[in-house]
């Protein structure tokens, strides 16, 4: 009896997840189709770039600064024990550029921008604003979704680059404060040991994370059912789906060493 119930539960969950994955795939296809040829509403694009990017800079900078500093604090005992001050910058920079920076900034971006995007689109859906656009012969995918997806992808890359820079500065400041390592030594450690590929690896990841956050947040926004309660549920689902997608993508991109 319990076994039957478990199978039913697992089956129901599997069908629900498949439905969401299918829906996200269809939306992605519609976005690609709307981008060929690329006719994006310029005003919506600029508005979203500003809203999603500029306003995220302070929180991303703060997160990145402490992430960089944290890498140094974590490695401090080993650096001291091995007297490997020349490797402190490499250790912090490698972790920040390739992994910690893109992941942390993406999760921050998902919580701030992705959740907001789902709530906004969800509210527009339940108040019939998307139908209102369609009634005026305006394709909501082209008018609303495409500018948001492009903005999120572009801005997450920009924020990751800014965050990387701030994290390295944070690492250097904390290294001076905690380990008394001079800025020049840290700078040398960064430039001699880190390669452009370390930086680009993080940038590629952020591009993929931006795509995942954008598409999932838009999907859960436009498929909201059930008024304000439904919007809350959709935001929750979007944040969870984005976090899971980010982790999965991160695993595969790290494994492939793109």
């Amino acid at each position: 009896m319990i076994g039957e119930r478990t199978v039913t539960l697992v089956g129901t969950r599997a069908v629900a997840v498949s439905r969401e994955v299918g829906g996200i795939t269809i939306l992605f296809g519609q976005i690609l189709r709307a981008l060929l040829p690329p006719r994006i509403d310029g005003r919506e694009l600029v508005k979203n770039l500003h809203k999603m990017g500029n306003r995220s800079v302070p929180i991303v900078a703060l997160t990145a600064f402490f992430a960089g500093g944290l890498m140094v604090v974590q490695s401090a005992p080993f650096v001291k024990r091995l007297d490997a001050t020349s490797l402190a910058g490499w250790a912090a920079g490698y972790a920040v550029l390739r992994e910690v920076g893109p992941i942390l900034i993406a999760l921050m971006f998902s919580g701030r921008v992705g959740a907001n995007n789902t709530a906004e689109l969800g509210t527009m859906t339940v108040t019939e604003q998307l139908d209102g656009l369609r009634a005026l012969a305006i394709d909501p995918i082209r008018y609303l979704i495409v500018p948001r997806v492009v903005s999120m992808m572009v801005m997450l890359v920009c924020l990751t680059v800014i965050g990387d820079l701030v994290a390295l500065v944070g690492a250097a400041i904390v290294a001076k404060a905690v380990l008394n390592i001079e800025f020049g030594i840290m700078y040398g450690s960064f430039t001699e040991n880190l390669t452009p590929h370390d930086f680009l690896h993080g940038v590629y990841k952020s591009l993929a994370f931006g795509w995942a956050i954008a598409v999932t947040s838009c999907y859960f926004g436009v498929t909201v059912r059930g008024g304000a309660v439904g919007v809350g549920r959709a935001v929750n689902a979007a944040v969870v789906a984005a976090a899971v997608s980010v982790m999965l993508i991160d695993f595969f991109l790290t494994y492939l060493n793109v």
């Binding site: 108040t127 604003q129 139908d131 012969a137």
Partner: peptide
């Protein structure tokens, strides 16, 4: 399709029950 409906919709005006005003 949505594309083929566009010229038909261009001849229609609609007031929605929940107003559907753009926030």
């Amino acid at each position: 399709s949505e594309e083929r409906l566009a010229p038909v919709r261009a001849r229609i005006g609609m007031l929605f029950q929940n107003y559907a005003l753009y926030d």
